[in-house]
Design a protein around this nucleic acid. Sequence first.
DNA 1: CCCAATTAACTTTTT
DNA 2: GTTAATTGGG
Length: 727
Amino acid sequence: MNLVQNMNDNQLKAILKTEGAVMVIAGAGSGKTRVLTNRIAYLISEKNILENNILAITFTNKAAKEMKERIYALVGETSKYIWINTFHSMCVRILRQHIELLGYNKNFTILDTSEQKSIIKNIVRSLDLSEDAYQPANVLKIISNAKNSLVSVKKMREQSRFGFMKNVAEIYAHYQSYLKKNSVLDFDDLMLKTIVLFKKFPEVLAIYQNQFQYIHVDEYQDTNVIQYRLIKMLSAVHKNVCVVGDDDQSIYSWRGACSDNIINFEKDFDDVELVFLDQNYRSNSTILDAANAVIKNNTDRKEKALWSENKGGGKISVYAASNDKDETDDIAKKILELKKEGIDYKDIAILYRANYLSRQMENSCLSFGIPYKLIGSLKFLQRQEVRDLLAYLNVIVNRADEFSLRRIINVPKRGVGASSMDKIDKYAEQYGISLFEALKNIEAVGVSKKIVTNIQLLTNLIEKYSEIDKYSIDELIIGIYKDSGYENMLKESNDPYAESRIENISELVSSAKQFSNMNDSLIDFISEMSLTSDSDDENQEDAVVLSTVHASKGLEYKVVFIMGLEENLFPSIRDAESSADEKNKMEEERRLAYVAITRAKERLFMSYANRRMQFGSIKMNKRSRFLDEVPNKLMHFESSFGGSFESTESNVDQANKFISRLSPKIKISEKPKSSVSTNYGVGDTVLHKKFGEGKVLVISTDSVKVEFSEVGVKTLLIEYANLTRKD
DNA sequence: CCCAATTAACTTTTT
DNA sequence: GTTAATTGGG
Ligand SMILES: Nc1ncnc2c1ncn2[C@@H]1O[C@H](COP(=O)(O)OP(=O)(O)OP(=O)(O)O)[C@@H](O)[C@H]1O
């Protein structure tokens, strides 16, 4: 049958050895994930294993979704009973069942990073420590590391009795008790509390140890200590574990990922079957040769010889841009050409090192009329209006969550400021009751009449919608949105973002509707909203993908652009502690470059800008060392001069000279003045495919400024805007 | 207590 | 250059 038919011998070995421990270590695009999906399908259809007894752990929710779809295609409807999820969502699922044993509400709230920071900040203030010395981000990092290494508050207090770390331990202690009091967990707690639960209640652990007969882990090189511990605990009964990974793609060490887990696996599990895959099915040999050449510069790695049957392929195009706008405009133009050649937008990805680089690219996409999809960045779920409404939901399911309650107590404005808040807190403390109970007794607190009425409206609202069975999730959100006065607040405000806020809320409502339709509970909805970073565009038309390299891990595209290949940007190294540390960080950057290059199947474009706007001022960076590590014979150079040439190995110097000529001193020649004629003039009403109707304000040599009735004033390039006059 | 105006922070990477 | 955070007047 075709589950095994198309697999090569080594892939087969990993699929057919279903019992015991299996570790597949292999380079990018060698079919590791494919091994996992086929293996799971094989267990079900050939070995008659029940779906419920199979666990598969992926790195991202997106990867989980993709794996679910692939397995669904192989085994059908019943695939929904397989546990396919990230470590974090698996832990949430387990904790929602059992966390009451640890004294938390099973509807616990999950914090995001900015919420964590604000809690830390409050604690630092309350302990009278300097906010400069104890920056929330730093303290949080230390606490997170501690949690990921299973260091408890008690242990940290014992280890650090003096100075800075003593205070950090104190903050840690306050932080944890605050979280517990509010029945709130942070991301690290999800795994930590699961481990604690398993340790304290072996009978709970036993349920899952018995259930998970077959355990699979994708992207194994990026698991951390605590995750490894979980794998070991869960697999202790059946001992059937299959992990796949690639040490060259380990790019999350800053988050505690520990590629030593690869070595530990061999030590800790008995009779590990090691499988190596060396045929790359994804990329052509030009791309693969480039990737291999770059990663070869890392000394701390096992040599792998990846090869591809797809010989040749066009040269890699390298563009030396004069500045950041020139770079992204060039990418946009190339995308339009590719589109003309028949390549769909959705088969094209633009990858960059840091999220902020997407902005300029977005501008270029807009002015060239290219549809795009932003992955991960401007996180929909982190928008304040979305967070506010979710905070209402949190209070509804988890009354102990005072953090969320404080967030919404004066949103929309109810006249409750710092001093009234103080009174309420004092009252609650005096009578030893919760914040919510204090609000229910607001008349006794001694605040103004106005506040009393407003707070009573709030508590009534929360109690009304606490009867969650009466409402679907979307009804609930709409109800809160309208009854709380949030809607009026937005509609009446002159906040320029009000309109987009309203739009975001309707997007939230529509994803809630999807959840309701699938019969998933409110709690499922809240969990998902806290765990996933990018909202799923259901209307994902044909659009170019803009993504960080990190977020592109495991995915593949026909055409890939890697932009911003400059020293200090990609590679980007900050605050190295020692030269050894710096070397490690550089190697991780190089692995990141390797990941980026190996996302491409057919064509690869790379670019850098000689000058770039950073922090509001112009920065000049040299081109990235990673470009120099690719053999010149694989590349084709172009520059903003319009010049371009092929390079052979014999004229490496020529290539470098050519590139260095593009020094920032040189005045970059203007783009050829386009003599594109227009059939519209200033003052005319015109139509744009995406922006709709607008009025022409200014026409210059190559661009046109239009005031659109729906999206406001935009400057577009005449050549690409494709405007038509409306009579 | 609220809003507008001024000032500071931001740019790694994510579950 | 943009956005969040803080400050001070109403
Ligand atoms: N035996 C095979 N024959 C043909 N194509 C294959 C085979 N195995 C995998 N592929 C294809 O190769 C591509 C890469 O596979 P896959 O994503 O599983 O690789 P991977 O090793 O997980 O990559 P990465 O390390 O980048 O995550 C996919 O398009 C997949 O369909």
